[in-house]
Simulated scan of single mutants.
Amino acid sequence: MKIVNVITHAFVGDLNHPASNSRSIWMTREGTLLQLVDELGNVGQGEASPLPDFSTDLPGLCETTLGNLEPSSFPVFDITGDVLAQVQQSLSLVDLNAPAARFALETALLDLFGQRLDVPIAALLRSRPHRDPIALSSVIFSEDKIGALAETEAIWERGIRNVKIKIGRIHRFDRELEMIEAVRERFGKDLAIRADVNGAWDLIEAQEKLEALTPFDLEYVEQPVVPYLLLKL
């Protein structure tokens, strides 16, 4: 398999609903779509859409990094060989400090291999032929119980039974408790609820608020404090 063309498209799109956590709010997403074309005309696609302040690379860096890739940079791939080893070796074309760009490259190559071998990408990643399925999860970004219930209802209808609710916004904990309580009461124990604070609490806050969350049987609370304080909880 030979890469004969590399195409990149920078994009910016408005979100249907604003997404936020305790630190940021996003109205749009931007990134770069990478397309790798092989000698048979197959197109493998990957996307680099890093979040500002949450990744070491930015959309502009991804666009430049991926735009610098040339077909001649790639080896000729052996589709009968070790797919993951060949993909891993090709990741050296992108700097380690650009993880989103590396993800786009990895995904595009796996997409191409999957097309050539007529298997889904998931099959290429399996270490055993039959593995237990991984349950899907979805993030709830709403800041009130009405919105959270509506989001969870839509997720439930899709068959998803795991949600992560973003909390930790300043002076909003009472509303966040109401939101979690409403979701738990509506969907019961059949729904796994997780919470993500994004390190917004200090130690005293975390101890008090984790105690307040106990009655709602959360599966876990992610990053209640910044990493260096975790061992002090």
Rank of each mutant, 00 (worst) to 15 (best):
D217W: 09
G44E: 05
I160G: 10
R23A: 15
S24D: 12
S55N: 06
G67S: 12
Q88L: 05
R29I: 00
E47R: 09
I146G: 05
V83G: 07
S92T: 12
G44K: 04
L40N: 08
H130E: 08
L136A: 12
T8S: 05
V4T: 09
R131T: 13
E70T: 12
I167P: 01
E211P: 07
P71F: 12
R29L: 00
M27K: 09
E30K: 02
V94Y: 02
G199D: 11
L40F: 01
R186D: 08
G199P: 01
P59Y: 07
I79P: 02
P99W: 09
L51A: 08
S24R: 08
L229K: 00
A85E: 14
E222A: 15
S49L: 05
K232Y: 10
V37G: 00
V139Q: 15
P129K: 08
F54S: 12
P75S: 11
N21Y: 02
G67L: 15
D174G: 13
G168W: 05
G199I: 09
I121M: 01
E185V: 02
T65F: 00
S73N: 07
L210C: 09
G13E: 15
V139K: 15
P129Y: 15
L109Y: 05
D202M: 04
M27P: 01
D118K: 06
G60Y: 07
I204K: 08
D190Y: 10
G168T: 02
I79V: 09
E143I: 10
T80S: 14
I165C: 03
D82C: 14
P99L: 14
D118T: 13
A206I: 05
L203N: 01
